[in-house]
Amino acid sequence: MNLFRLLGDLSHLASIFILIHKIQTTRSCRGISFQTQALYVTVFVARYIDLFFRWISLYNFFMKIFFIASSVYILYLMKYRYRPTHDPSIDTFKVEYLVGPAVVLSLIFNYKFEFTEILWTFSIYLEAVAILPQLFMLQRTGEAETITTHYLAALGAYRALYIPNWIYRYFTEDVVDPIAIVAGLVQTGLYLDFFYVYFTKVLQGQKFELPA
């Protein structure tokens, strides 16, 4: 463990708390893509299936449980509790275009052709692009509640912070994980436009609005 990874994980944790807080205080999941949230459940379940056969640490164990449980809870909130506040007509990204390529890529580019290893690889590729339905929705509506932008910023910071972690691990542990690194760079790259508006507008106290 190093500081970058710890901060990345904490940022990830924070993003989830912000999202749950947003849904509960506004009693609405307006502006949140159900598809993106469903993809995160898929990502966590596929990757953390190793809870059954791989022990890393107590930290790692509880974080995995938390990510699976909280993502399922968010789906529940969106699907049942606050269902009327979700507008499927603006959440129309075709997730097949993300899941399909992630399946194919994980079958081709993996470390070992084994079921759980391919699931891990699939989860890494899918996570890289899982935010797209959410960003697509933001693009369509052209604006977002401030709290939603804080959620997205914390979520984007999480993978961005993993990048110095990988550089650090390369030098200190001689560990390199090309699949995670390439996917992580793509994932972070997808946030660049968002970060630009977040830093130049939201953090200056303005509303998140995309130019018409």
């Binding site: 994980d9 990830h12 190793d50 791989r54 990510f67 470390y111 070992k112 972690n165 560990v175 390199v176």
Partner: peptide, 10 residues
């Protein structure tokens, strides 16, 4: 040559 990554990250 390096061993394959051991998936100890989240």
């Amino acid at each position: 040559h390096r061993p394959p990554p051991k998936h100890d990250e989240l």
